[in-house]
Nucleic acid binder design. Structure first.
Length: 469
DNA sequence: AAAAAAC
């Protein structure tokens, strides 16, 4: 039985230097195109696997020993203090135990790391960046690229906490106190950003990447997606590699379908290490999933009003995912008109409005948040126990299920092994088929809950462990 | 034909 882990046993020999060389500013056109992402059942990432161990593929002859304690790792006292007293971590998680020795041991090889929601990926790359910085050099040395502003902010926060006792400076492209002027320069040692601003900063020579020794991609499969950020990402990689051939590239994500994984392996090169954790830690298993047949589109809103919102008061927090920005806006308005308190977020909103909505949600001031896929990945609010797929996640063609997106969306609940549940709203044959395919792909039960069966909704949330009863 | 970044 093939699984994600098996398929890396004998990775194809990647061609070297297959990312195009580009001038600073990443202006060059990419000649290396990633494959079209076609998620299919061939990605056995979620099959039953007997292997309990994290699968690793190490390059070269460097021996790596799994770290049972943070004390086993080549980390400064200041960083360890941050780990123990600020983050209150006891010992490394499994992914940390495996990947940190690979990341922190010279020669600093690139790494592809797949680990599930809440398994401590952020800690891995935060420590990687913090420990690779030379404190005596006051310039950018570590870069982390993320798909959304919200993730940029969140990751900067983690780096700052972890590095609380180390004299290392960090900043992000989400900062509001920074305006491009002729003499503006980024001097912070760690920079976390989204593509647009990073590209802008580099081309305007506000950000000098000459001394960048480590480049991290969070949600790496998204960042290497053919019809998405791939060209920006590969241009940035080759540009920095031209300045520093020894660049350590770290690709982190919970999901790498076969196509993106093959491309990622090409990007990191044959000297890279790889780490994959098995499905047993997959958050899917702890998240109860259901589907609700909605005869008409109006029923979706009705189910929210009649079933979900009234029950939400008793739950933790809820995120409702929709496909389009306009739906987020309209649904929010419709709910508010009916006196149901909630907020909404999507990429078309003003930055400060986005920041405000996220801050209120993190505070717990708002219980229900309507969102596009801007928050589908990485967004970490421990109080989220319920996810609603108001629209089923689909690829651009609107017919192919977006398997990875589904996994990431429902992974917003049940953080760090806590309870979680997900409702999938299904309207029409297309969404029904999408649901079936997702069900088959993940081989996970998704029972139906009748849209008008109030008692059953209550029952189901009890089953999922979200309410006391 | 969408969403994600951004000037």
């Amino acid at each position: 039985m093939a699984s994600w882990a098996d398929s890396v046993d004998s990775p194809r020999a990647p061609e070297e230097n297959d990312t195009p060389a580009t001038p600073p500013g990443f202006e060059a056109t990419s000649t290396s195109e990633p494959p079209q992402s076609e998620a299919g059942p061939s990605n056995g990432a979620l099959e039953d696997g007997q292997q309990d161990d994290i699968k690793t593929v190490s390059a070269g002859d460097t021996p790596y020993t799994s770290a049972t304690s943070f004390d086993d790792l080549p980390l400064s006292e200041e960083l360890k203090k941050g780990i123990y007293t600020e983050m209150k971590f006891d010992k490394p998680s499994r992914i940390q135990a495996k990947s940190l020795p690979m990341i922190l041991t010279p020669p600093y090889r690139s790494l592809i790391a797949q680990a599930h929601n809440g398994s401590g990926k952020t800690t891995c790359f935060a420590l990687a960046m913090l420990s690779r910085v030379d404190p005596s050099l006051q310039c950018p040395q570590a870069l982390c690229v993320c798909p959304t502003r919200e993730l940029v902010v969140q990751n900067l926060h983690v780096v700052q906490r972890m590095g609380k006792f180390a004299s290392i400076t960090a900043t992000s492209t989400a900062r509001t106190d920074f305006h491009l002027s002729r003499n503006a320069r980024v001097t912070e040692q760690i920079v976390i950003g989204a593509h647009g601003t990073l590209k802008n900063w580099v081309s305007k020579r506000v950000l000098n990447t000459e001394r960048v020794a480590i480049l991290v991609f969070d949600e790496a499969d998204e960042m290497l997606k053919a019809d998405g950020f791939a060209s920006d990402s590969t241009r940035m990689i080759s540009s920095i590699r031209r300045q520093n051939p020894q660049l350590q590239l770290l690709l982190f994500s919970a999901t790498f379908n076969d196509d993106v994984k093959a491309f990622a392996q090409k990007v990191v090169g044959q000297d890279a290490n790889q780490v994959y954790v098995p499905r047993q830690e997959l958050s899917l298993d702890v998240i109860k999933q259901y589907w609700v047949n909605c005869p008409t589109a109006q029923h979706k809103t009705k189910v929210l009003k009649d079933m979900i919102f009234p029950l939400c008061e008793k739950l933790g927090q809820t995120i409702i995912f929709v496909r389009m920005r306009e739906t987020a806006r309209a649904l929010h308005a419709a709910m508010e008109t009916d006196g149901h308190r909630c907020t909404s977020i999507q990429g078309d909103m003003e930055k400060d409005a986005r920041d405000r909505v996220v801050a209120e949600f993190r505070d717990g001031a708002t219980k229900i948040l309507i969102s596009t896929d801007v928050l589908a990945r990485g967004f970490d609010v421990t109080q989220v126990t319920l996810v609603v797929n108001y629209d089923m996640p689909v690829e651009r063609d609107l017919r192919t299920p977006a398997f990875e997106t589904y996994l990431h969306r429902i992974g917003r609940s049940g953080r760090f092994g806590r309870k979680g549940a997900a409702f999938n709203f299904v309207c029409g044959d297309m969404e029904k088929r999408i649901l079936e395919e997702i069900h088959k792909y993940f081989n996970h039960e998704i029972p139906e809950v009748k849209h008008d069966d109030e008692d059953r909704f209550v029952e189901v949330l009890q089953e999922a462990g979200l309410t006391e009863g």
